[in-house]
Simulated scan of single mutants.
Amino acid sequence: MPPLTAREVYQSLRDAALGLRPLKRLEEQPEAGPVHVDIEGWRLTLDVDGVHLRHCLNCQSPDGRVFDGGQRYGTDPVGLLSTWELAQVERLLAAG
């Protein structure tokens, strides 16, 4: 099974920012550090510093494919978000 691309992970974040898919935190998290979220079966671990989303640490799609942001060189899905999309995702994360 091929790994997830940054663009595929970005699309799930973008859909959440646009309100097309719900973003749910999987557990209460401290102010900073890894945040585990679910976007309709997409399981993401995001690096959050306070209220700012830094990057995607890893992701697993509903079909079992994996994106490992810590091991891969290249584009971070968070880097593909527009300024507005990033602000929306950060707002969703803050809302919990």
Rank of each mutant, 00 (worst) to 15 (best):
E28G: 14
L80F: 04
L92H: 11
L93I: 13
H36P: 02
F67S: 01
G33R: 00
R25H: 10
E40N: 15
L18P: 01
L46C: 06
Q88F: 06
E90R: 12
A95Q: 14
H36S: 12
N58L: 09
V66P: 00
A17T: 04
T5I: 01
Q29E: 14
L81V: 06
A17E: 09
A94M: 10
L26M: 15
P22S: 14
G96R: 14
P3N: 11
T5C: 03
W84I: 06
D38T: 10
G64F: 03
E90G: 08
H52M: 11
E90A: 10
A94F: 07
D38H: 07
H52Y: 13
R7S: 01
S12P: 00
M1R: 09
T83A: 14
A87R: 14
E28P: 12
V37R: 02
D47M: 11
V51D: 15
R91F: 11
L57N: 08
G64H: 03
V9Q: 05
D15N: 08
T45S: 10
K24W: 05
P30I: 10
A95Y: 08
L53V: 06
P77F: 04
R14A: 13
T5V: 00
G50L: 09
L4C: 01
A94L: 12
G96P: 07
L92K: 12
W42R: 10
R21W: 09
P22K: 15
L92S: 11
Y73T: 05
R7V: 00
P77E: 06
A6D: 02
R7E: 08
R14G: 00
E90Y: 12
L93C: 13
R43H: 11
R91V: 10
D76Q: 08
D76L: 06
H52A: 14
I39A: 10
L4V: 01
Q11E: 15
V51E: 15
L20Q: 15
M1S: 11
R7W: 02
R14Q: 13
D63P: 02
Q11A: 09
V89N: 05
H36Q: 12
Y10M: 02
V35P: 03
V89W: 07
L46W: 05
R72M: 03
V9I: 06
